[in-house]
Design a protein around this nucleic acid. Structure first.
Lengths: 193, 193
DNA sequence: GTCTATATAAGGATAGAC
DNA sequence: GTCTATCCTTATATAGAC
């Protein structure tokens, strides 16, 4: 099934993402993880240095994905705030539907990172958020977005699709495409004046 | 400061709620909790039977609060779906602003309950959700709500205010009243056609 | 690269003195 | 009701054989 993932480390990261999503980072033991990839716990250490390194790699990989999305959105600077925001929302929805488990660890388990990784992570997140904030502010000032507290709008928006990570299974009830085409009007409908 | 909370058990539950929110249930040790209430770990067991019992009580207490809200909303059956939904959303927002830590444990840590408590919890949640589903379906059929997948609408709605539990501090940036009066139009604006 | 064996620390929980 | 001491289990991680 995943024959093309020949690298054992990649298998471990994928299994860890699922376990971290289902049980949480702290409640997932190295023995749990080892069982999931058919190894003894000690054998994991041939591929990774520590349990936390796994979390670091998952968080970093996803931070990069969001960062790339931000760079793409920056290229749209001739478009309206509304169009740029919609682009980012679609990006978030697609990330949720394409790589659910990994994004969930990223969303929920980053707090278990130790320093300096925790600070680095929070810095990247702040950067990303302030990029969205900028779009929101522009839209509010232009009068195309509802006039309200910027943070309130930002976090409500980001939070509103977080459930996807726990819930969505492509094609089970809804295709990823249907999901996107129903969700975007709901989100944007509340924001646009 | 909390002199009127004379009961040690109540102190323990409050401290546990905060720790579970900040570090998660699994990453919170009984020794952490003991330190937070100025006791030795063993002394906790004079007030509670086990670590999980604490989680059970927190989850149950909050399930009850939401259940009560549901009962109040049922009394509004002569009102429109829109009014009933708005009532429930205001309830959720108020719960977030009034007792943040406890609701957060309830939201995020229930999965660490063991059976039969886990099943009981999920049953109660299903009941609550199906009550909201009913309102949503009615609104969609009447044409007052956006015509879309019911679950999609339900979870987006519930999820959209979950960030409050991590973020909101009354009066820090916004009063609870301002929060509510800005958030409700945003949420309802997306839903109403 | 995987195994068995094990070091070392931390976890939840109990016993018994006060 | 709180303490000290401790039991027992589980955790992360390492050592060394194959």
């Amino acid at each position: 099934m995943d024959g093309f993932i020949s690298d054992k480390k990649q298998q471990i990261l994928i299994a860890a993402s699922r376990l971290f999503r289902d049980k949480g980072y702290s409640a997932t033991s190295m023995r749990d993880l080892a069982r999931a990839v058919n190894l003894q716990a000690s054998s994991l250490y041939n591929h990774i240095a520590s349990k936390e390194e796994i979390l670091q790699e998952i968080c970093l990989a996803n931070a990069r994905r969001f960062h790339e999305g931000m760079e793409q959105a920056k290229a749209l600077n001739n478009h309206s705030p509304s169009e740029r925001l919609e682009f980012l929302m679609r990006l978030h929805i697609r990330m949720a539907t394409q790589d659910i488990t990994s994004v969930t660890s990223f969303n929920d388990e980053w707090r278990h990172l130790s320093e300096p990784h925790l600070s680095q992570f929070l810095d990247m997140r702040r950067q990303y958020e302030s990029f969205i904030r900028h779009i929101l502010r522009e839209g509010i000032e232009q009068g195309t977005f509802r006039n309200m507290d910027e943070s309130l709008l930002l976090y409500t928006l980001l939070s509103s699709i977080r459930w996807l990570y726990d819930w969505f299974e492509d094609g089970k009830r809804l295709s990823a495409q249907d999901l996107e085409s129903q969700l975007i009007p709901l989100l944007m409908g509340g924001i646009r004046v």
